[in-house]
Computed example of a mutant assay.
Amino acid sequence: MPPARVAAEALVGKLLCNKYRVVQLLGSGGVGHVYLADRIGRPHEAAPSRVAVKVLRAELRDDPLLVARFEREAAAASRVRHPNVLCVEALERAGDAPCFAMELLVGLDLADTLTFIRSLVPSRAVRIAADLAAGLEAAHRAGVIHRDVKPENVFLVHAADGREIVKLLDFGLSSLQEPGAEGSLLSGVVGTPEYMAPEQAQGAPAAPAVDVYSLGIVLYEMLAGRVPFQGPYPAIAEQHGREPPPPLHRVHPGLLMSRELDAVVRKALVKDPRGRFPSMAELRQALLATPEAGAGVAFAVQPDAAAPPSGIGHWGAKP
């Protein structure tokens, strides 16, 4: 077993922060390990008995950039309370290890979902995008710009009653809109090139319009089966800045969608941020006004989409 895995497994059975008993390692990523844990010592409270706990990897604790990103994720996400945003608690320390608890989710992220079925029926894509817009609007009201909206950071919870609940994850690259909060370590060009607004790629100050653009790209991908621009960086950034997205019907000839939905996608992807929807609330309103929004798709697996292999599930947070 690799040394990093051994170190991660060593926390199983331990008590973190005097209130989280680690049950098992759920996953490891480039920044942290995520554990299933039992919350103890609070039987009189309504808090869930089981949570996920994310702990910064031991070998990264001397890296100021990664420590700042980890702390930013906890600080940003914990100030947003909305049904479509992963519930994250305030940053804590388990010895010398920064950590935070979050709600435990069961389901699949949007990136894996698109890997299995390539594109979504428009009604489902509209519902997911509208729910994301609601969560992002709550984040913007709390002074948080996400800056990394993409399918990997969108989780589709498989609820017991068959509903599909959308959750926005990973605020590690977010911008906090308050004096002195931005911090030089996380300023400049940050994000994922395929989903990055033109002004974001140029290092402009963060604003809600960058999340509008990124959500537009996610909606485009859900409908077309791929992002509008692909290739190496910085060439892809130049495409976002200069080239119009290929028409959806050309990328996906069999796509059946309304003119109203096509217009929403195109407006979200206007190059000049002043030409986009001025807020997530208005983007959501436009989505809900499309004919697709009235289709009433409510379940995780659609009749025209192959189901993911049985047994696949995730714990609802990126390590």
Rank of each mutant, 00 (worst) to 15 (best):
E292Y: 05
G275N: 05
A74Y: 06
M196L: 12
F155Q: 04
D131A: 15
F299S: 15
V270K: 15
L132I: 12
T290N: 09
D170K: 08
G143H: 09
L16V: 03
M102K: 02
A101K: 07
L36I: 01
L156M: 12
G162T: 12
R79Y: 02
G275M: 07
G172Q: 09
G203L: 05
L219N: 00
L66N: 03
Y220C: 00
E164L: 14
L65C: 02
E238S: 12
F277S: 00
A74Q: 05
P246L: 10
K267T: 07
L261R: 06
R127S: 15
V189G: 04
I117M: 13
L36D: 05
L132A: 11
H249F: 02
L105P: 01
G143W: 07
F116S: 00
V53K: 06
A94D: 13
V154C: 10
L223A: 00
R81Y: 08
G231R: 00
A46H: 13
R72E: 09
Q177C: 13
M102A: 14
M257V: 15
A224Y: 09
A74S: 11
K271A: 14
A298V: 11
R39G: 00
I236K: 06
G188M: 09
L156S: 10
L269R: 04
A317H: 12
S310G: 14
H44E: 15
L91T: 06
Y220N: 00
P43G: 04
E73G: 01
V53Q: 06
A77V: 11
S123N: 08
G135C: 11
L215V: 04
A142F: 14
A129W: 13
G216L: 07
P179D: 04
E59V: 11
C17K: 09
K54R: 11
G183H: 06
D62I: 00
A7M: 10
G162F: 13
